[in-house]
Every structure is written in structure tokens, then in C-alpha cells.
């Protein structure tokens, strides 16, 4: 299966982790991104993820290929949810297996950081008060916003 993939249903971490098993690997590192109940002072009730999937998969595969080359890790996978998610749900999972732990940790960090920066995925927050907003889009749309030029570099 593809090293970068989307899912409309809950991610099966045990199954994803099993894909990384390799007798030559002594280290495994994973990152889980969860839906948090607050962001920038707002109380978040639920999230909605949307992706330009054709390009996102292509860009995600490039990130994983770069991680494997740069850190020399054996296997790497990233799975991202799309659709409606509730608080506490697993939104994104990255897993890496390697001969040693150091490259596994570093590759895992690299992949999640690059995914957040570059892959065409959008997140809409629905707040407790009933409002909603697309993360990184509402603020930079404000007239005279200075952060706009950096929108694609922003990450939290």
C-alpha cells in the first residue's frame, strides 16, 4: 500500500504498526496527532478535515521518500483522517522503523513537520459557541493581515 494515505474511518494503529515490522530494525518511533478541545483561546467542539487527495498523496509520498533517503530509515508510513472528527480522535499517525532509534525519531519528526507545512489538507474548527473557522485561513484573510505571506510556513 501507499506510504501516505487517507482514511474516512478510524485509523487502525496496530495494523499500521505491523506494516513497519522488519527483523533488521531495532527502533520504532511513532507520532499521533489528536483532536484537541481548544485552539488559540477558542473551545473546539469538533473538527472537519478536507484534502486535495490526488496532490496530497503525491506530496506525502515525496516527503516519505525524502525522509527515507535523508535519515536512512527502513520503513515509514503516514495516515491522515478526512471528514468529521470528535475531540480525542486520532487525526494523523506517522510511524517509522529503522536499525537504530535516533534516525527513527528524527525521520518521524521530519515527516509530521513537512506534512503540516506542505500537504494540501485543511482543518475546519467548530467552536463551542457555534462559530467555525478554517485554520490558517481566517486570520490571514483579514484586511492588512501581515502574517499572510507566511501562511504556508506556519505550523503549530
Amino acid at each position: 500500500m501507499a506510504a501516505f494515505r487517507f482514511s474516512r474511518t478510524a485509523l487502525d494503529v496496530a495494523a499500521l504498526r505491523a506494516e513497519l515490522a522488519d527483523p533488521a530494525c531495532g527502533g520504532y518511533a511513532a507520532f499521533e496527532g489528536w483532536v484537541r478541545d481548544h485552539n488559540e483561546g477558542e473551545r473546539v467542539r469538533r473538527l472537519e478535515y478536507e484534502a486535495f487527495e490526488a496532490l496530497a498523496v503525491r506530496e506525502g509520498e515525496r516527503i516519505i521518500a525524502a525522509a527515507r533517503e535523508r535519515f536512512g530509515v527502513a520503513h515509514a508510513l503516514c495516515a491522515h483522517r478526512v471528514g468529521e472528527l470528535g475531540i480525542g480522535e486520532l487525526a494523523v499517525w506517522v510511524g517509522v522503523s529503522a536499525a537504530h532509534r535516533d534516525e527513527a525519531f528524527r525521520a518521524c519528526r521530519f515527516i509530521i513537520d513537512e506534512v503540516k507545512h506542505r500537504v494540501p489538507i485543511w482543518k475546519k474548527e467548530h467552536y463551542v459557541g457555534g462559530d467555525s473557522g478554517w485554520v490558517n485561513c481566517e486570520r490571514c484573510a483579514a484586511p492588512g493581515a501581515e502574517s499572510g505571506a507566511h501562511a504556508h510556513e506556519r505550523s503549530r
Binding site: V92, I112, H117, V119, N136, S155
Partner: peptide
Amino acid sequence: VVFIPPVAGG
């Protein structure tokens, strides 16, 4: 053609 708004995955 697709115009891509600021992304926010993860």
C-alpha cells in the same frame, strides 16, 4: 486548476 488555501494538516 486548483487554488490551494493555506494548509493545516496534522
